[in-house]
């Protein structure tokens, strides 16, 4: 198992008594692609942030194991170095810092973790160009400041490019498709598909089914009120497409009611 999430409870750090995740369970094996869907406010982005180690959240119960490590005990950069990658819903701008410097620093931090020698400027350039060609990214990508002056779509593409460079074990895409037009979405989907491999897993968090039509996940989970209320295969995407979340949520609430 690559990732095991057990009974995860989390809340915003300074908002006690407002739990967001309320006992979430999730198992992911190497090579699997899992989609997490759900209505607004279900806790989708919280799950992404908690897995990546954002400080704004407090874990009140539960465990997360990643490749045998207690993920929750690690700092965000340690998680990144061990292979957890988060593609941001809103990639951050860093003025004055070139993508090249940013990514060379990141790649070398991860290489160091893996006991590999650092790449110098020339080696890195060659490596980066190979990824640019693979993902058909614009040639000047490396020379621009990190995300500064990028359109929404370009920022997301840049995140996918970073993902390709860092070769993570677990890629979390946090509503990467939000605000993207169909062409940009295809680029993102192509990126993800070209990075799929037997030892790389994905969590694709999304509100809409459209991205999933291109990515074709192995498993689909519906998140509601801080828990996964239904899991299934790709067919679940189409069920949602036809009926929306409401039917599923009502059925879930009815079930809970009956249990009580």
């Amino acid at each position: 198992m690559l990732l095991t999430v057990k009974n995860l409870h989390a809340q915003v750090a300074d908002e006690i008594d407002k739990p967001i995740l309320k006992g979430l369970n999730l198992d992911i094996k190497p090579g699997e692609v899992h989609a997490i869907m759900g209505p607004n406010g279900a806790g989708k982005s919280t799950l992404s942030s908690v897995l990546a180690g954002r400080e704004d959240y407090e874990i009140t119960d539960g465990t997360v194991e990643f490749s045998g490590d207690d993920l929750l005990a690690l700092s965000p950069e340690e998680r990144a170095r061990k292979g957890v990658f988060l593609a941001f819903q809103y990639p951050v701008e860093i003025p004055g810092v070139s993508n090249k410097l940013f990514m060379q620093t990141a790649v070398n931090a991860i290489r160091e973790e893996n006991g590999l020698p650092a790449l110098d400027m020339f080696d890195f350039d060659r490596y980066a160009q190979s990824k640019i060609d693979l993902l058909k990214m614009p040639k000047d990508l490396l020379d621009r400041s990190v995300n500064v002056g990028f359109s929404g779509g370009e920022k997301k593409r840049n995140d996918i490019f970073q993902m390709a460079l860092l070769e993570p074990k677990l890629c979390i895409l946090d509503e990467t498709d939000s605000g993207l037009d169909i062409d940009a979405m295809k680029v993102v989907a192509n990126g993800v598909n070209s990075l799929r491999s037997p030892d790389r897993s994905f969590i694709v968090v999304t509100h809409y089914q459209r991205l999933l039509d291109y990515i074709k996940p192995d498993f689909v989970h519906v998140l509601f009120d801080g828990k996964i209320i239904q899991s299934g295969g790709f067919e679940l995407v189409h069920a949602l497409e036809e009926k929306g979340y409401d039917d599923m949520i009502q059925a879930h609430q009815q079930l809970q009611h009956n249990q009580k």
Binding site: G53, E55, S75, E77, A80, L86, V92, I94, T105, A106
Partner: peptide, 14 residues
């Protein structure tokens, strides 16, 4: 910003 720092940290940069 915290956001900038977190973005860097998430890429493995201390």
């Amino acid at each position: 910003g915290e956001d900038q720092l977190f973005y860097c940290q998430q890429r493995g940069i201390s």
